[in-house]
Computed example of a mutant assay.
Amino acid sequence: MRIGELSRRTGVSPRSLRYYEEQGLLTSSRSETGQRHYSDAEVERVSLIQQLFDAGLSSRVIATVLPCVETPGDRNVVELAFAAMTRERDRIDADIAHLIETRDALDSLIRANSRHQTTLTAGPVPTRA
């Protein structure tokens, strides 16, 4: 199938598909006129690539992990993919910890702002003369 058909079947733009190919995530054959042609198996591969991107993995990490899917019996490939996935999980854990700290700081600011709003709506306390 040509790039337009793959794009239509996967919902991924032709530009993204060309990027995937540049990054070594996707392969195609070329016609005599230079048009890209993809096999039906590439539909599933593009879906997997999309899932990995949606999970926050970079194209570099995806390129490390994908061979594990293609050659699950190759111990070297499996070990490299495992190391890459573990590093990514650790990075995501660190991002989550940072987001929790940021949320907690915002919660503190929201409470302080709420208390301040209460004093503003109460107005000034009259003094006796």
Rank of each mutant, 00 (worst) to 15 (best):
P124W: 11
E44L: 12
P67W: 04
L109D: 08
L48T: 13
A41Y: 00
D107R: 11
L48D: 03
A84G: 08
A81D: 02
S28V: 04
G123N: 11
T10Q: 09
H98K: 12
S16L: 11
C68H: 03
H98F: 08
D90T: 14
A94D: 14
L99A: 11
N76E: 14
H37L: 13
V69F: 12
R87E: 14
E101P: 00
P72G: 05
D104M: 01
E22C: 04
P67F: 06
L106K: 10
C68W: 04
P124K: 12
I96N: 08
L26C: 09
T119H: 08
G11E: 01
L106P: 03
P14F: 03
R87D: 14
T86L: 14
V46L: 01
V77E: 04
P124H: 12
V12Y: 00
A97H: 08
L48R: 11
L26F: 07
V78Y: 06
T127D: 10
S29D: 15
G56N: 08
T10M: 08
H116A: 14
V12F: 01
G123Q: 09
I3L: 00
R111P: 04
I3Y: 00
L57N: 01
I100V: 15
T118G: 13
S28K: 02
I62P: 04
E79D: 15
S39Y: 02
T27N: 12
A122M: 13
T71L: 05
T86K: 13
P67G: 05
L80W: 03
S31K: 09
Y19V: 06
R9S: 02
A94K: 11
E88N: 13
